[in-house]
Design a protein around this nucleic acid. Sequence first.
DNA 1: ATTTTGACTGAATAGACAATCAAAGATCAC
DNA 2: GTGATCTTTGATTGTCTATTCAGTCAAAAT
Lengths: 217, 217
Amino acid sequence: MSEPRRPPATRRAADKAARRTQLIRSTIDSIAKRGFADTTLANVAEGAGLSHGTVNFHFRSKEGLLVETLRFLSEEYKTRWARSLARAGPSAAQKLEALILVDLDPAVCNRKKIAVWFAFYGEAKSRPTYLELCGQRDQEHFRALRELCAELTDDDSHPARHAELVASALTAMTDGLWLALLINPAGFDRDLARRSVLAYLESTFPEHFPIKNCDAA
Amino acid sequence: MSEPRRPPATRRAADKAARRTQLIRSTIDSIAKRGFADTTLANVAEGAGLSHGTVNFHFRSKEGLLVETLRFLSEEYKTRWARSLARAGPSAAQKLEALILVDLDPAVCNRKKIAVWFAFYGEAKSRPTYLELCGQRDQEHFRALRELCAELTDDDSHPARHAELVASALTAMTDGLWLALLINPAGFDRDLARRSVLAYLESTFPEHFPIKNCDAA
DNA sequence: ATTTTGACTGAATAGACAATCAAAGATCAC
DNA sequence: GTGATCTTTGATTGTCTATTCAGTCAAAAT
């Protein structure tokens, strides 16, 4: 009685969370398959094997579901990012390489996920919440890279090594490689993407990224 | 009588073409303002100051209007690209720099246009026609850069200078910088974007792009 | 001057969709 | 077991939207 809220019934709470991610996964599938504009609550519910009323029960509205879907993607990405950083070697160069290669990890870098990211990017300008969430990811990415780049060189007057410039170039490049994988799947693959980024690192920080990928074609 | 087709009445033909681009421009405005999903024929018609039935008169369908809008953007981009190449100096380095700077020209590189490009990118996976048109642009971009890069170096065994890798890195970078301008307008601007690409060029082809942008901040 | 052609309008139509809700079912506390 | 609470269902509602089309008007052709 003094407790206004009981500890949640474990079974139900788990089910509830499971349903939410189940619906979110179905949303991701639908956006990747049908696109943002043609994704309906009926599609999502059907994909999850549930009736359509359920979606409005677990999420306040369609917009709520979409925002949670973006949040889910964002969290998933951050988790992989943090894990990769934790596993990376101690040097700044190793960390930098690890961070960049996360973006090319098949778990995040596959056409389905990329299509969904770009679906949200495409609506970002007209929906402040999307802009906020997408921008946040980009800015964290950028800041982390900038710090690592700054550790790699004290030659900040040299423009090609200026941490700000290199970090923004790297952020742009990884995003752009995702786009290439999305819209040019025949001519692009993850391996070409990986070698392209590494070539840039070798060219900018030759002492930290010695040439080693000549034969990795 | 022997002529089954008269020459078109010039006045009307011009009006017709004008109406089409008028509607396309209104479509661009609407997508940038409301996003792809919330752009309706009524919006487009209102933006153009016409009744909503007109759109179906000038374009077979909404989808037809959207495809023509993408085609319009694509043509506009190619035109600027060709013009810039024609005006550039004769050396491969000058041409390369010119091609890359077109992407940062305010006429194509502004948030409105970028938002529309990314709206189409976002739907590209589920609509083959968009994929075709977007992919085409990206591939032409890539091929042109690769040829110029190949002219800049014969050191093709060095990965950081392998034309294929540098060209895909550059294509990715310019696309990624567009994205940064779209989703992080506060932290990014065209000048930072420009300096980032040039830093990459200086770092990869130091003999062709001597350091010169240190103080351009 | 009259006819023909083409551009445009706006009301009507039919379909799709998100959201609501009452009822049924499942799970839990006691 | 029993009642309370949470979850799910699917029919319904009201809104929105692309498309059609019959009719209007102006410009061109005759």
